[in-house]
Design a protein around this nucleic acid. Structure first.
Length: 432
DNA sequence: TCTGGGGTCCTAGGACCC
DNA sequence: TCTGGGGTCCTAGGACCC
């Protein structure tokens, strides 16, 4: 009402990102790795999915196949670890709960990233506060993080990138009100923008849009035509107009996939059945934990596309007559589909299941022949018992017979570190 | 011997309907 | 010569994210 009053400051987003997350998790429990080159491999010890700064400086790219870089890793004395998801998931929970205790609003964006939103009275001295968050996370979890602050999520992502890579910023950067913002953005390539992947980056570069600053100034109509409304949203966010809000609670999943590459080629239908059984069981268990049911089930099967040998891949899906989250009906359907797409004579590398058309269990569509939802007895009670046992005693304690017991197809994890925080056998000790 | 796994959203085009 | 117009739904493919 009064024009004398200063304009309210806009809300500010922070992006908190754990530095080289998986590597940092390994270092928390093996402090001697500090300062040494370290990588963590994907499932099956396949690709490099996390690199320490030392390794990044050596020029090893993200996603590099480990076997192709074997000599490089040895030459530089790189410490190599299989991925240890039990450890990383637990460390992620710890980092997120520290963040949640320090910020008014939080969106857990991935296992190593969270957006925070500061409004109203929180706006003062945000940069200093972010520094406190950073040191508090470090003190309570041992994980180093970087924090970027800005008016929009897309800008906060960029601020984070700068905070992490420009030495002077020391892990925290607030992009708001900086006179040198344009200079900083003109030095960043367009591929660094959240939402600009390799294809769009190449397209933009062909049209002379090379820096983040150039993208910010690009023509809206052209962007909408070539990068869809999503790209337009990105450009508006770069201009400081918030288009993407904070999602405090994740929306319910729409689909769910379980698959894994085999540790070695598999030719036999029986072995494929075993692997698929494990995946269906795991997917169904997740479904039950989410209190959802699936209306549609897809099964797929593929050979190794990198190998010069006969290739075959197939997928088949079916709408379930009755949406369910029971392992038995899903398994029966899945194994039936697998049998129909399987062809002998190929060396398969992967099979898996996708559950889609997910609905909340409570509001499940009843089938025409079903007068009322099934009681909690029968298969459902059995499922609950199985889930509880598997949660308490470890994944796979109780399994379906078709999952097999030989498991020759299971993945390789030859360089696994201990489950330092989730298994009593491996728990970290303190020397007196 | 060896190349991860799990998601979301948008668009174009075809089928179908009135 | 000349072959409507507009709406909805579904799917495949392409893009992106971590």
């Amino acid at each position: 009402m009064s024009s004398i009053r200063s304009r309210p400051e806009p809300p500010r987003f922070a992006l908190v990102d754990c530095n080289n997350f998986y590597v940092s998790c390994e270092r928390v429990f093996q402090p001697h790795l500090e300062g040494l080159p370290v990588v963590v491999l994907s499932n099956n010890d396949g690709c490099v999915v996390a690199r320490s700064n030392e390794v990044k400086r050596l020029g090893l790219p993200m996603g590099a196949p480990a076997f192709k870089w074997q000599a490089f890793l040895e030459r530089h004395g790189v410490r190599v670890f299989s991925s240890n998801y039990a450890l990383y998931a637990d460390m992620s929970d710890r980092v997120m709960s520290v963040l949640a205790s320090l910020a008014p609003e939080i969106e857990i964006y991935s296992h190593d990233e969270a957006f925070l939103l500061f409004q109203g009275s929180w706006r003062r001295d945000l940069k200093e506060y972010a520094g406190r968050i950073r040191s508090e996370v470090g003190r309570r979890t041992g994980i180093p993080v970087s924090i970027g602050l800005a008016r929009t999520k897309t800008l906060a992502k960029l601020a984070n990138k700068l905070a992490k890579t420009v030495p002077g910023f020391q892990g925290v950067l607030d992009l708001e009100g900086r006179p040198d913002t344009d200079r900083l953005l003109s030095a960043l390539p367009v591929k660094d923008v959240w939402g600009i992947g390799p294809r769009y980056a190449a397209l933009l570069e062909r049209h002379g849009i090379r820096s983040v600053l150039a993208l910010r100034e690009a023509d809206e109509q052209w962007i909408k035509k070539r990068l869809t409304v999503v790209g337009l949203q990105t450009v508006l966010e770069l201009r400081g107009i918030p288009c993407i809000g904070l999602e405090a609670s994740p929306p319910p999943a729409k689909s769910l996939r379980r698959s894994r590459s085999f540790g070695r080629p598999v030719r036999d239908l029986e072995e494929l059945r075993e692997a698929l059984t494990v995946h269906v069981h795991s997917a169904a268990q997740r479904l039950r934990a989410n209190q959802q049911v699936a209306g549609c089930l897809h099964v797929f099967l593929q050979t190794n596309r990198f190998k010069p040998e006969p290739q075959y891949s197939a997928q088949r899906s079916t709408a379930l007559t009755q949406a369910t989250n029971g392992t038995q009906p899903l398994l029966k359907t899945a194994l039936g589909l697998l049998k129909r797409i399987y062809k002998p004579g190929y060396a398969y590398t992967k099979t898996g299941v996708i559950l889609s058309d997910l609905q909340p269990e409570a509001s499940r569509q009843l089938s025409l022949w079903e007068a009322e939802p099934p009681k909690r007895e029968g298969p459902k009670g059995l499922m609950q018992v199985m889930d509880r046992i598997n949660t308490a005693y470890g994944k796979g304690t109780l399994q379906y017979a078709s999952a097999g017991t030989e498991r020759a197809w299971e993945m390789r994890r030859e360089r696994l570190s201990g489950a330092f925080t989730t298994s009593w056998a491996d728990i970290a000790g303190v020397k007196p």
